[in-house]
């Protein structure tokens, strides 16, 4: 649900919230400086200064239910947002990616098929690969990990057929692809 207040107002309110002290002087300062947001500032000052009593009660059954539901929705949200980074790529694109990463095409294919154990890939290589397929590294890693957990793949409702296959470390992948030892060492030493 989008916020009904403008981004500028949101920034001012956030800055107000981060003030060391929320008191009369701080509120006066902001009211003088941003009179157009006066009602929001007064409302926020109330919320930030209201008295609370620490709630140490154990979680209720309803709380537990809400937490479990939030977790399930979180997984669904991620699934819905993950974009298949290779879906629209042509053979030529894949070739260019292999060239730009200086690895054989089979290595790129292994990533596309999510055969690699993500934790074994140096972060710098992942960053370059994600950038080459126009993804954030976080999104790219979530995509790659979908291949590592059959349960996860099923729950993510991906458009891509779930894969249950043997996974390889990055080093094994490079060896299989006949990458020279010197190049392997260079790639694996990237941080």
């Amino acid at each position: 649900m989008p916020s009904i207040i403008s981004p500028q107002c949101q920034d001012i309110l956030e800055a107000f919230s981060l003030e060391p002290k929320i008191d009369k002087e701080t509120l006066e300062h902001y009211l003088n400086k941003y009179p157009q947001f006066s009602e929001y500032l007064v409302d926020l000052s109330f919320e930030l200064t209201r008295t609370t009593i620490e709630d140490c009660d154990p979680l209720s059954a309803q709380d537990e239910e809400d937490i479990e539901m939030a977790w399930q929705r979180h997984r669904e949200r991620i699934a819905a947002k993950v974009i298949h980074p290779f879906a629209d790529l042509t053979i030529d694109n894949l070739r260019q990616i292999a060239v730009s990463l200086d690895v054989p095409r089979s290595v790129v294919s292994a990533f596309r098929e999510r055969k690699v154990i993500v934790g074994s890939v140096p972060k710098a290589f992942l960053l370059r690969f994600a950038s080459a397929v126009n993804q954030t590294v976080e999104s790219f890693m979530v995509f790659l990990r979908q291949g590592s957990s059959p349960a996860a793949v099923r729950s993510y409702k991906s458009n891509v057929k779930p894969l249950e296959q043997e996974q390889l470390t990055f080093e094994q992948l490079l060896i299989q692809a006949d990458v020279s030892q010197e190049r392997r060492e260079k790639l694996l030493s990237e941080r």
């Binding site: 009904i4 207040i5 919230s17 409302d43 926020l44 930030l48």
Partner: peptide, 20 residues
């Protein structure tokens, strides 16, 4: 923002939603 002032950030979220 939440990593800097978690409780204040949640309170700001709460008031934002209240308004909506």
């Amino acid at each position: 923002f939440y990593e800097v002032q978690f409780m204040r950030a949640v309170r700001m979220l709460r008031i934002d939603v209240y308004r909506e």
